[in-house]
């Protein structure tokens, strides 16, 4: 499987303090990669570099083999990179319908977008003219995820989808993510709570203090190592 999204040797800094020390990561089409790690490890920064929101100090970002290092976020978005940021990736003062209108940048018509989104998340159809900020947390996250569905991205980057949501809602959202991946989208998921995402991930990487400490198939051995990495190894 060839990598659709590839980060190689990415370094990045926040106000002069380096937080990523050479991250190598690749995601193939149809693959779900989980990026795990403790607080402050640099997971969100990795995603932001991949979406072009945060500049990389060095290293290369490749998409489909093409070098896209330094390309701005709006151009990457048009090229098919979809980042659903931490918190709620929606416009709270806009109605649900206007939020969906904002997803028309790939050329799909408003009606098509609404059809896709409402078919997958029927509750949004009922809330169509409500301000998005007044939706429940789960509904807001569904609306955010609708962007990943309706804009036909090549790469989907998800940051903490589970934040502040009930476990049942989280499980439902990750089912949708798996479904998106089955359509050939490369998915990179950042998650603090490993259990939620390891069920659907094909591959997992653990980021600790800006370095990938371990990656591989998320089997039981991996999970044992994972807790060691989170909690510090017993030796």
């Amino acid at each position: 499987m060839s990598a659709l999204l590839q980060l190689s040797g990415i370094r990045a800094a926040h106000e002069g303090i380096t937080v990523l020390h050479g991250v190598d990561l690749s995601v193939a089409a149809g693959q779900v990669v989980a990026l795990l790690g403790p607080n402050g490890a640099g997971k969100t920064t990795t995603l932001r570099v991949a979406a072009g929101v945060h500049p990389a100090a060095s290293g290369r970002l490749l998409m489909g083999g093409r070098d896209v290092t330094g390309v701005g976020p709006q151009d990457l978005a048009r090229a098919g990179v979809c980042l659903i940021p931490e918190g709620r990736g929606i416009f709270p003062n806009l109605s649900v319908r206007d939020n969906l209108l904002m997803m028309t940048f790939t050329g799909r018509s408003r009606e098509e977008i609404e059809d896709v989104a409402f078919a997958r998340f029927p509750i949004l159809a009922q809330r169509a003219s409500q301000a998005a900020g007044t939706l429940s947390g789960g509904e807001q996250q569904m609306l955010a995820l609708a962007r990943g569905l309706a804009t036909d991205p090549a790469v989907l980057l998800l940051d903490e989808l589970s934040m502040g949501l009930a476990p049942l809602v989280v499980a439902n959202l990750y089912e949708q993510v798996a479904e998106i991946a089955r359509q050939g989208v490369a998915v990179l998921v950042v998650e603090q709570f490993a259990a939620a995402v390891l069920g659907i991930a094909d591959h997992a990487a653990v980021l600790v203090r800006g370095r990938i400490e371990r990656q591989g198939r998320p089997d039981s051995g991996f999970r044992t190592d994972l807790s060691a990495l989170y909690l510090g190894s017993p030796t």
Binding site: F91, L94, M102, M103, T106
Partner: peptide, 14 residues
Amino acid sequence: RATVDDRGLVQLTG
């Protein structure tokens, strides 16, 4: 209108 809400997110929508 979206720009007031979240400039960063506007960029993510191209």
